[in-house]
Design a binder for these strands. Structure first.
Length: 329
DNA sequence: GCGTAATACGGATCTGCGCC
DNA sequence: GGCGCAGATCCGTATTACGC
């Protein structure tokens, strides 16, 4: 059903139907109502592809994530998609993986789909290849980067101060008498660099030397968290607490402590990062740094739509994280 | 207040033509 | 016949000029 079909049924021309659909003046009220009734009766929905030809937009938004299966990605994707749909846009969600080749392929796919804007979530995208990909393929559309930064004229950044957040985590552990802390998890992404920076800064502030810090790096997985925690227990029996780079890694660590008979929080305090469902489901429930991923992504979506529709926003927005304290501390 | 006709949009596909 | 190339056509909608 096109506007021509509606026009024929209404006994008017397609331009009249177009004027009614777009609330343009110069239409008699009776004609307007008649056309509206037919549009409703036939469940008329405009062809967005055809509209896109004329209006030079597709109302499609590309959403790039490393992996939608990540617990903290599912919530934020839900929130972002809902926001976009409310604004009349449709999201194309792509799992862009964690390797540059996959990311560039995802970028090319979005370019082919002629998206109006792109939302990238996760510091994993903060690399030279993706930056060049944006320059080459997205130069004429706005891009919003949640949890990462690029200094490009069409890129907006929404960040959360994870460095500061982890510093506060260490402060909390010190306050609880568990100041001899270790950091376990992923160390390779820009986000984990920030977390580690906060950890080091707070530990040095507490009088520790950089050489004495216990930092174990590995994959951002439950299995890795389990294995690294076992290593920690065997090599550093004096450690009183652990900050994990992600809740997922912390979940593996909690299991390792359970298997080793380590009582939490009496013998070991645990803090994860991301404030996902893992913290709630663990036994005991573990404290987590809420790095506001969902709020960050929602804010990023808002800024993206603003940019597409010509509204101004600052190029960079910083959100503050906070600690959700549970039984593990 | 409305109709008609023309034009535009992007890109895939089709058609016709000339050349080898 | 096969190929490459240029131009036409198509899709659905929006817009505009003009006329009645």
């Amino acid at each position: 059903m096109t506007i021509y079909d509606i026009a024929e049924l209404a006994g008017v021309s397609a331009s009249t139907v177009s004027r009614v659909i777009n609330n343009k003046p110069g239409i008699r009220e009776a004609t307007r109502e008649k056309v509206k009734a037919l549009l409703k009766e036939h469940n008329y929905t405009p062809d967005e592809n055809a509209r896109g030809l004329v209006n030079k937009n597709t109302r499609l938004i590309g959403i790039l994530l490393a992996d939608i299966r990540s617990a903290h990605h599912t919530d934020l994707t839900y929130a972002v998609e809902k926001y976009l749909r409310g604004k009349g846009y449709c999201g194309i969600i792509l799992n862009a993986g964690s390797h540059a080749g996959e990311m560039l392929e995802a970028i090319r796919i979005l370019e082919q789909r002629r998206v109006d804007g792109v939302l990238m979530v996760g510091s994993v995208f903060q690399n030279e290849e993706v930056e060049n990909g944006i320059r080459e393929h997205f130069a004429n559309i706005p891009v919003v980067f949640a949890n990462g930064r690029f200094d490009l004229p069409n890129v907006y950044c929404v960040l959360v101060d994870e460095c500061d957040g982890v510093e506060h985590c260490v402060d909390l552990l010190v306050k609880k008498g568990k100041g001899n802390a270790a950091f376990i998890g992923e160390l390779d992404t820009p986000s984990s660099h920030e977390k580690l920076k906060g950890f080091k800064r707070a530990m040095l502030r507490c009088g520790r030397s950089e050489d004495s810090l216990v930092i174990l790096g590995g994959e951002p997985s439950r299995e890795s968290g389990y294995e690294l925690t076992r290593q920690l227990l065997s090599r550093h029996p004096d450690i009183q607490s652990v900050i994990y780079s992600e809740d997922l890694v912390a979940a593996g660590g909690m299991r390792a402590f359970w298997d080793a008979g380590v009582r939490i929080p009496d013998e070991m305090a645990v803090i994860g990062i991301d404030n996902t469902i893992y913290g709630e489901l663990s036994c005991p429930r573990f404290t987590s740094l809420d790095n506001k991923m969902t709020e960050m992504a929602s804010e990023a979506a808002r800024i993206l739509i603003d940019a597409i529709e010509g509204r101004q926003n600052p190029r960079k927005i910083m959100l503050l994280s906070d600690i959700v304290e549970r039984e593990s501390t």
